[in-house]
Design a protein around this nucleic acid. Structure first.
Lengths: 175, 175
DNA sequence: ACATCTTGGTTCAGTGAACGAACTGAGGAT
DNA sequence: ATCCTCAGTTCGTTCACTGAACCAAGATGT
């Protein structure tokens, strides 16, 4: 699915957005970043994308200000990719896409997204129907649904089975 | 989708959605369909995509139930591609993407989207701030903004300069 | 001291998708 | 009879994605 970048003739904000996040794998990288994944290897394991493509995507996402590469230890020197405000701002788009995918092509619910303050499941535009407010991404809790494989092979998927707040760094079980 | 085109390892509604609308040009075709474009040649002119790619995308979108191919005249036999409910349901995702593109990478506003009933510009999740309701796509009026080229070369872009309701078939000026 | 492991990449050959230009075919219009 | 429009298909080139192998810095094991 060779996705080029340039929609030269388009005067359109949607096309501008797709020039940046429309390449293959890119939106899934952002999704994973919102789920709390930060390290190259964790992205790699969870996405199953070719290493070169992942490196290229992390590169562009960083240079576009959607992720930020930051040193998290000096010895050995290791960097992590943390999602920025600009990346967090993609949540409504990802949420809308996911909702559409589930409603029109999904069988069972794979994940629930709930308001951390009250436990209510989010409405279709990311609001909390109980509180009547749009829930900030940090206050969304992700809980596995019935459609999700309860024993995935890779440790990253396994770590994502535990209910967790979005953006909170993912803890990988040593097992 | 054939091998290599899918996101096989992903258990995720976002990935499911992207398997269908994540290929290059696909979301722009849906956007144009929501703008009222229905004919092969109009898509072609407005998008500037290669003919073969456009034909392939119209094909998959039709087979996925996002567009519907329908005969609109018999002599000569001509078909048009009309967006279905499933395609209309992509509006929130396109809207969110476009908003993100404009806020983070756009200079001037290219288009305004307003509630037909009251003329108020839509809020960030497609609601009318004045009426307090989520506006159905049919009741959205698209108006050109200051960032849009007032004299585009192709007749389709020119036709899209006139304020119009979404979904309403596009009228191309003969000139 | 040396080998091995972990992390985060780069390189490279093979393949498939996108590109753009040319071609096709059905059916008016002149 | 020729030209034009619409909606594609065909085809050679270019470019992006893929998977496997390779690389390097630093930590860890023996």
């Amino acid at each position: 699915m060779a996705l080029g970048k340039d929609y030269a003739t388009q005067e359109c904000s949607i096309a501008r957005a797709l020039e940046i996040v429309g390449e293959r794998w890119t939106l899934l990288v952002v999704r994973d970043a919102l789920y709390g994944i930060r390290r190259y290897n964790d992205f790699l394991v969870h996405l199953g994308a070719p290493r070169a493509v992942l490196a290229a995507r992390l590169q562009t996402l960083t240079s576009e200000g959607i992720l930020e590469k930051r040193r998290y230890q000096e010895s050995p020197p290791r960097d992590e990719y943390v999602v920025t405000e600009r990346g967090i701002a993609l949540w409504p788009a990802l949420r809308a896409l996911g909702l559409w995918g589930r409603e029109h092509f999904g069988e069972e619910q794979l994940r629930f997204f709930r308001h951390a303050d009250c436990g209510t499941e989010l409405g279709s535009y990311g609001e909390c129907p109980a509180c009547g407010t749009v829930v900030p991404v940090r206050d969304v809790i992700m809980v596995p649904g019935p459609g999700l494989d309860p024993h995935p092979a890779d440790p990253v998927s396994r770590a994502l089975l535990r209910p967790k707040r979005l953006l909170q760094p993912l803890q990988i079980d040593p097992a």
